[in-house]
Design a protein around this nucleic acid. Structure first.
Lengths: 235, 235
DNA sequence: CGCCTTATTGAAACCCCTCAAATTCAGTGG
DNA sequence: CCACTGAATTTGAGGGGTTTCAATAAGGCG
């Protein structure tokens, strides 16, 4: 809830959204931001809420999910520190199309939507940076759309794990631990399958020495073999 | 290839990308645009080409496709007049991630990428408009991602037809004609299935009086029943 | 310890893909 | 005008990847 403490402009400077903006301007932009904290599993906002704030994650992880009409849930993506989210709703003036949940202890900066629009008029670079962020995100969705449209479940799970590893992987001596609480159900909702199929797949991979999985936790033992699974073109 | 003839600023004024920009400014923006024409089935650019131009479709339809590593093709979307495309590549400074094909006779306006960036700095509203366009597009992709991840083929085909009808539908006395050349293969590439399944589905729908399909052409006879198929929640 | 959530595993059903073959259709050139 | 050709479409048969359902096991937490 507090206005930025410490050295606000420097905090912003390392974030993509604010690249190529002078420290002087960042100071003014930072003045309009408020800081929020959330505990693990707390909701930041719900799908359908009016979109009021433009958010940038500072620490922690945020999960963005969408509920289908018949009650199924899917995970759209995980947000990492430095990334902006809730950009879409603010810009298109519609309710939040997703639900945001704190995966762990989260701290974020946010701007009131109208204020952010003013700032973009004042500092066009801010709008242009947002554009390239959204552009990248569209491309990611196009890729995932292609994947889910053309690929088998096993490969999609492999890709999901690799993506997670690159975002939140922690290197251990025997492999890469995906360092968030991650259920089979979560993986299923990311890849468009069922928790049963995920469980079977992980069991098989465990036998093959590809991964080691515990409750709500996966460690990749052989990234290389997983990449082969994800990329290999021999059907 | 010609610089805009006729009344350039007015031509732009009705396009989303240029909303809330004064005619005076539009005149200057128009000065930097060039106009191109393409014949049916001609390629505007290929996936992998360096991205140089920011395009707005004036007349006709453009199909955006993506090729997978193993040679499968998917259709990402159809572009209608007034819509911008190739936005992503220019903004993120990567090669075109898609191939653009003229579905019929096409005329478009384009701006050189560097020039468009300058214009966005000069007229921030231009960047902000682009943002809300991209925001809408991401949402569309999120929705389609959810669909393809959670829904059965029949429903996905129903949705695809309804979307096409709203974009390029021509009202006839007995139904809505989807007014572009549209093969079973095309529908399959839009919905992540095979042309065989599309063919079977359309055959069944034809028996049920939902649609009437000929070669490369589909007419929706009962939009209402199709909506029920697309939206009905009883599994 | 008992409870609730998460995960595993088997069996059956089924949706959809794959392959093959036949058919229809539009365009082309004789 | 019609045979010829290649593309688009249809339809059947078979198989396989996934889902679904059910039952059991394993972990974490009060």
């Amino acid at each position: 809830m507090a206005i930025l403490a410490g050295n606000p402009a420097h905090l912003l400077a390392s974030i993509d959204l604010f690249s190529q903006i002078s420290l002087h301007d960042l100071d003014k932009i930072a003045l309009n931001a408020t800081q929020h904290e959330y505990k693990k599993n707390e909701y930041l906002f719900h799908q359908g809420d009016p979109a009021r704030r433009f958010c940038v994650l500072v620490t922690g992880k945020v999960k963005l999910t969408q509920l289908t009409e018949d009650g199924q849930q899917i995970i759209l993506r995980y947000v990492s520190p430095g990334e902006a989210f809730a950009v879409i709703a603010v810009l298109s003036k519609i309710p939040y199309p997703v639900t945001a949940t704190a995966v762990n202890q989260v701290s974020l900066l946010s701007w009131e939507d109208q204020k952010m629009l003013e700032l973009m008029h004042q500092y066009p670079q801010l709008a242009i940076n947002s554009l390239s962020i959204l552009a990248t995100r569209i491309q990611e969705f196009q890729d995932r759309f292609r994947e889910i449209a053309t690929e088998r479940v096993e490969r999609r799970i492999a890709r999901a794990l690799l993506r997670l590893a690159s975002q939140t992987g922690r290197k251990l001596e025997h492999g890469i631990l995906i360092d968030i609480s991650l259920t089979r159900q979560d993986l299923a909702e990311m890849t468009g399958t069922t928790l049963y199929t995920v469980s079977r797949t992980l069991s098989q991979w465990e036998k093959d020495g590809l991964v080691s999985s515990q409750r709500e936790q996966v460690t990749i033992l052989s990234p290389h073999k997983l990449v082969v699974l994800a990329e290999d073109m021999s059907r």
